[in-house]
Simulated scan of single mutants.
Amino acid sequence: MTDVDTGGPGTLVIKERVISRVAVAAALTVPDVVRQVGGMSRLTGRDLPRADVSVGEHSASVNLYIAVQWPSRISDVAHAVHDEVARALDEIVGLPLHRLNVVVAGTSPRSDAQSPISENTHPVLRPRPPTASPAAHYAAVVLAVALLGVAFVAGREFLIVHGTIVGAPWIANTVEWIADLHWATWMIAGAAGLISVGSILVGMGLTPRSKTHTGVRSPSSPSPMVWLRPTDVARMCSDHAGNVPGSESVRTTVTKKKVTVEVRRVASGDDAILTESVRDAVAPVLAVLADTRKVRVRLLHPSGVGETRS
């Protein structure tokens, strides 16, 4: 990975797998480049296209393995892939491409052999956004521990029956205790509790995963190539707003529908000018996001009195 100096407080860390995913997504926008995940690739996880990335101080080198439709003019496809990957890395990551080696590692027959060579016939797949862990994750862990407990009890009973160990059988005693039970009022509360727990578990199992990232758009691709956490967006906004003259410190909060930029100014002045300057500073960051958000700028004067501008 590489650290890019943003000119403000802190650094922006770009991991190699981010560059790899950007290169793969850019390659798929080229006509005649197809995704290939069948056969041994599905078992080994080495699907096509895939990229091996080496990041230097000011540039990146990529070995890109692709699958192309057959027949196709491979030299033209390689040049188009080079241009798209270079453009995507420069526009999205901000890192120039030093060298790109294109390796044609697979082919896929066209659905219509009479179609022109330059026609793109493969469907464009929209990537799935990153999501949080399922709501039933913790319930599954509890259930797994309970099943391990049942297995332990069953193994103990097996050893007692065969005389390997000596002890009171838990299962037999439990069955006898249940058989001797008679109706009691506490059973109503127990049944209601079990119904509530069962309903909660069913709801957790049916709850869809929540999105944890927001996509970044690119002029060369209709689908997001990079996904950012709200914290990443907030840091980028704070870094840009912190360069505005008159701002002493900046704190940004990002939600699914709103971006709040809280600016503590150095001295009193024209609030309208500072507010618009902050809006203009964070506009380039928010313009590339796939999800639009409302921007609010809150100014904190040296005295500590806050004023909100919508």
Results as ranks from 00 to 15, higher is better:
Thr260Asp: 03
Val233Phe: 01
Leu12Pro: 03
Glu91Thr: 15
Val77Ala: 03
Val297Leu: 08
Met1Leu: 12
Ala113Tyr: 05
Leu100Glu: 03
Arg126Asn: 00
Thr6Ala: 08
Met1Ala: 07
Val175Ala: 08
Ser310Ile: 14
Gly163Trp: 07
Gly246Leu: 15
His240Thr: 06
Thr252Tyr: 03
Val85His: 08
Asp32His: 10
Leu89Pro: 01
Leu64Met: 10
Asp47Tyr: 11
Val93Thr: 02
Val153Gln: 04
Val103Thr: 14
Ala139Asp: 08
Ser41Leu: 15
Ser249Pro: 01
His182Asn: 12
Ile165Gly: 00
Ser75Lys: 15
Ser247Ile: 13
Cys237Lys: 12
Lys257Leu: 05
Leu147Ala: 08
Gly149Met: 11
Ser59Lys: 12
Gln36Gly: 01
Asp112Cys: 08
Glu91Phe: 11
Val244Ala: 06
Leu147Gly: 00
Thr212Arg: 11
Arg73Met: 13
Asp232Met: 10
Pro31Ser: 08
Arg298Asp: 01
Ser108Cys: 05
Tyr65Trp: 15
Ala80Ser: 11
Ile160Cys: 02
Ile117Glu: 00
Pro127Ser: 09
Ile14Asn: 07
Pro230Trp: 07
Arg99Thr: 04
Val103Cys: 07
Arg87Glu: 10
Val142Ile: 12
Trp186Phe: 05
Arg265Gly: 04
Gly215Ser: 05
Arg128Leu: 10
Ile200Ser: 03
Ile165Tyr: 06
Leu43Gly: 00
Pro219Tyr: 02
Val77Glu: 04
His182Phe: 07
Leu289Thr: 02
Glu276Ala: 14
Pro222His: 03
Ser277Gly: 06
Thr29Asn: 08
Ala67Gly: 06
Val166Ser: 11
Ala136Lys: 05
Leu143Phe: 02
Gly246Val: 14
Gly167Asn: 08
Arg217Lys: 12
Thr107Met: 13
Arg293Thr: 01
Trp183His: 12
Asp270Gln: 14
Leu299Met: 13
Gly39Met: 10
Cys237Pro: 02
Ser72Trp: 03
Asp76Ala: 11
Gly203Ile: 10
His240Cys: 08
Gly246Ala: 14
Gly198Gln: 03
Ile195His: 00
Leu299Ser: 04
Asn101His: 14
Leu194Pro: 02
Lys257Ile: 03
Leu147Met: 12
Arg279Asp: 01
Phe152Ala: 13
Val145Tyr: 00
Val261Ala: 07
Arg235Ile: 10
Thr275Asp: 05
Asn101Ile: 15
Gly106Glu: 09
Ile19Lys: 04
Val24Glu: 13
Ile171Glu: 09
His98Pro: 00
Val161Ala: 11
Val166Thr: 14
Thr212Pro: 03
Trp70Ala: 12
Asp232Leu: 09
Ile200Pro: 00
Ser61Cys: 11
Ala67Glu: 06
Leu12Arg: 15
Ala88Tyr: 03
His98Gln: 13
Val244Trp: 03
Met187Val: 11
Ile19Arg: 08
Asn63His: 06
Asp76Arg: 15
Ala140Val: 01
Val93Met: 09
Glu84Met: 13
Thr44Met: 14
Asp90Glu: 12
Val295Leu: 15
Ala272Glu: 10
Gly304Met: 14
Ile273Gln: 08
Val34Trp: 00
Val233His: 02
Ser277Pro: 01
Ala184Ser: 15
Asn120Phe: 01
Lys257Tyr: 02
Gly163Tyr: 06
Ala80Asp: 11
Val142Ala: 05
Leu274Gln: 06
Met236Ala: 15
Val124Asp: 00
Ala151Pro: 01
Val175Gln: 10
Leu289Lys: 06
